[in-house]
């Protein structure tokens, strides 16, 4: 894998509010989803810990272990509250 690679990230609910953006393109230095969340959490002061988040890539839930690929669309899903 060539780094940095570009991915797209969308924010929802409390993370959208805390980031102040719906979505953005990011250049990432590693293919590790967990590392990406921790970096964003620190940079933007996210109030949710990584344990409260469920990752999704390309409109499907996925494991934290899934490696990122160029062009991936990432969403870090906060605890859901439908119904």
């Amino acid at each position: 894998m060539q780094f940095p690679m570009q991915i797209r990230i969308s924010y929802y609910a409390v993370l959208r509010e805390q980031r102040g953006l719906d979505e953005e393109n990011l250049l990432v230095e590693s293919a590790d989803l967990r590392e990406l969340y921790l970096r964003l959490e620190k940079a933007y002061g996210f109030s949710l810990s990584q344990k409260q988040i469920c990752p999704a890539v390309n409109d499907e839930f996925c494991a934290w272990e899934r490696p990122l690929l160029p062009g991936d669309h990432v969403v870090f899903i906060p605890p859901v509250a439908g119904g």
Binding site: A13, V14, L48, F61, P79, V80, A81, G82
Partner: peptide, 28 residues
């Protein structure tokens, strides 16, 4: 649906305070 579907709820209370409801489930 309440446990698994990525939908979020922000409540507004009579004192004007707003909060994202995050007390239910983790989402996966």
């Amino acid at each position: 649906v309440k446990e698994r579907v990525p939908i979020w709820k922000r409540e507004t209370y009579s004192d004007g305070e707003q909060t994202w409801v995050t007390c239910q489930h983790a989402g996966p």
